[in-house]
Computed example of a mutant assay.
Amino acid sequence: MPHSRPASERSRLHPFVVSGGDASPRDQRDLMERPFFSLAKAKRTVPILYEAGDVRVEVLGMPEHGMATIWDADVLIWAASQIVEAENLGLTTSRFLRFTPYQLLSGIGRQTGARDYGLLKAALARLQSTVVATTIRNGQNWRRQQFSWITEWEICASQTGRAAGVEIVIPEWFYRGVIDRSLVLAIDPAYFRLTGGIERWLYRVARKHAGRQQAGWAFEIAHLHRKSGSLARVADFACDIRRIVARQSLPGYRLGIERESTRELLRILPADLSTDPVDSHVDGIGTSGVGTIGTSGVPLSGLQACKPQLSLWPETAIPVLNLTNLESNSYVDGTGRLADNGRDPSVSRRQGRGGGP
């Protein structure tokens, strides 16, 4: 007998129709802290294997598409931003999102030409084909959970053949990490204008750990290299960091190099942040964990003014109140700081307020 095709998740989920697109950008803390994405411009198929304490992350990229990149992660950042915005308005959200390509591309600072739609399609393919296995947020027994960044996706065309709508299903692990306010941080919209993969990675690390602490946060560069999953040599990695320090290109932060004996440290200090805090403040952040490193990046283009495209769905908000709040999965110790079972003593932190949202 022929095998029956598995039922689509979209057939079992109520769609969350994105009605706008101008939500303030938010990022998910776990994605900012651990190595989940390739930062290289070239296709990466070498796995990422990261372990610290009870925390383990494995990322596999399929040969056909390669591993999802830090630029592909913009899709997840945009999706998280829309979900948080809708939840703040009391609307019901879902792992099944419907939106137009124009909403997404314009929301992350991309142009909306034919080439950009092609790049979006390639990004969705990488997000779906990348396999992630992790023990993060899986309860007291630290069960391993495996998923892809996008479970399903489809780009729908209008009668003229132009891309008019996108449907995606995000994994439960990511969705729960977004609707839990303590696991989300607002980020500077200027993030999308950063052109280098390592700059984008470093901004997310800075936002996650240094936050708004006056004393900032210090990282040993060799430690960052180990945590990054970078395929570059330590010396090349350090040179990339020094170039970014010389440019001072991270929005909202000032960078400096410090030396303690034989150790070289990166000091990150907050400047004038343009982001606003997310709803629930969380004090203090645990040890750092970062994404994979690449020495080259794909530049992001600016916005292109054009009329909204025809949508396959009415651009109306879902008029259903969301009265369900999940409890935070974060563990807060007696000092009010978030505990991190993967704490690494090689990270240097000074006294001051935690890097909360």
Rank of each mutant, 00 (worst) to 15 (best):
Q309H: 12
V332Q: 07
T134D: 03
G61V: 00
L49T: 11
F237W: 05
I170A: 13
H223Q: 13
K208Q: 07
E199L: 06
R5D: 14
I293L: 04
L194H: 03
S19R: 12
V278S: 14
A157L: 15
E152T: 13
S330I: 15
S19C: 09
R233V: 12
A215H: 03
G342I: 11
L338Y: 07
E260M: 03
V59Y: 04
L300D: 14
R254F: 02
G107R: 00
Y191N: 04
E87Y: 03
D344K: 08
S8C: 10
D30I: 11
P47Q: 09
I70D: 09
G342D: 02
L300N: 14
L49E: 06
F219W: 07
R353T: 11
A317Y: 02
I198R: 01
N322M: 05
I268F: 03
H65W: 14
I293D: 07
I108R: 00
S296R: 11
L76M: 15
T151P: 14
F219L: 10
M62Y: 07
H225K: 02
Q82P: 08
K227F: 01
D180W: 03
L194A: 08
L312K: 01
G336N: 10
F99T: 14
T335V: 00
R259E: 01
Y117E: 08
D276Y: 03
Q146K: 08
E172V: 01
S330P: 01
F174C: 05
T275D: 06
N322C: 11
R353D: 04
A186S: 13
S274M: 04
L303V: 08
N329Y: 06
Y253F: 11
I241Q: 04
E315Y: 02
G342R: 09
A42H: 07
D344W: 03
W313E: 14
G118I: 11
A7M: 09
R226E: 10
L13C: 09
H14D: 15
W71K: 09
V320S: 12
